[in-house]
């Protein structure tokens, strides 16, 4: 499980490690910005998710697959499932409430610091997509991150399905 790089002992690059510590958080914040800006500006769930995926891959570069596994408290399949549930739910809930599939609405809310903010229910769909992409990146690193070399591993690495299910 926790095989490190093939060289003896983990050879870590101090500069890389330290800069990634700073970068990791800032890229995640940027990805959240993309997620929320997505409705009327460039961005959106898929772009935000990919940006967060980039942050996760930076963590992989510095610490290997273990660092990715410990990055989030939730297991990757739960992140993916929740994302799918949220985005599929935004299609179903309007039907239950008597509208059309995927129908959405918006509402302006006055917030103390941000001023008037327009919330759209499509944001929920974007959050779902974001979670799906992040879960997928986590799963991919968990499945293929440890390079065990050309031997038959016990658990067949089944690549997670359903990429590109969202029509952005």
């Amino acid at each position: 499980m926790s095989t490190q790089a093939p060289t003896s002992g983990p050879q870590r690059l101090v500069i890389l490690d330290q800069s990634i510590k700073v970068l990791y958080q800032s890229i995640l914040v940027l990805s959240l910005y993309f997620l929320f800006a997505g409705h009327n500006l460039p961005g959106g769930g898929f772009v935000g998710g990919l940006t967060a995926g980039a942050a996760v891959s930076l963590r992989y570069v510095s610490g290997g697959a273990m660092a990715v596994r410990t990055a989030f408290r939730l297991p990757s399949h739960i992140v993916l499932g929740l994302g799918l549930l949220v985005s599929a739910g935004t299609a179903l809930i309007p039907v239950v409430l008597g509208g059309a599939v995927l129908e959405h609405g918006d509402r302006e809310v006055g917030l103390p610091i941000f001023g008037d903010v327009k919330f759209v229910s499509a944001l929920a769909f974007d959050i779902g997509v974001y979670l799906v992409v992040v879960g997928l990146v986590l799963m991919a690193f968990a499945a293929f991150g440890d390079d065990l070399g050309p031997i038959e591993s016990t658990a067949p690495p089944e690549p997670p399905d359903g990429t590109g299910r969202e029509a952005s």
Partner: peptide
């Protein structure tokens, strides 16, 4: 007309729950 999209959405929602219950 409400029933039309059910055959797509219900399996997708179920798939999501099924992933969580892996």
């Amino acid at each position: 007309d409400v029933l039309v999209p059910f055959s797509v959405i219900v399996p997708l929602v179920a798939a999501a729950v099924s992933v969580i219950a892996a």
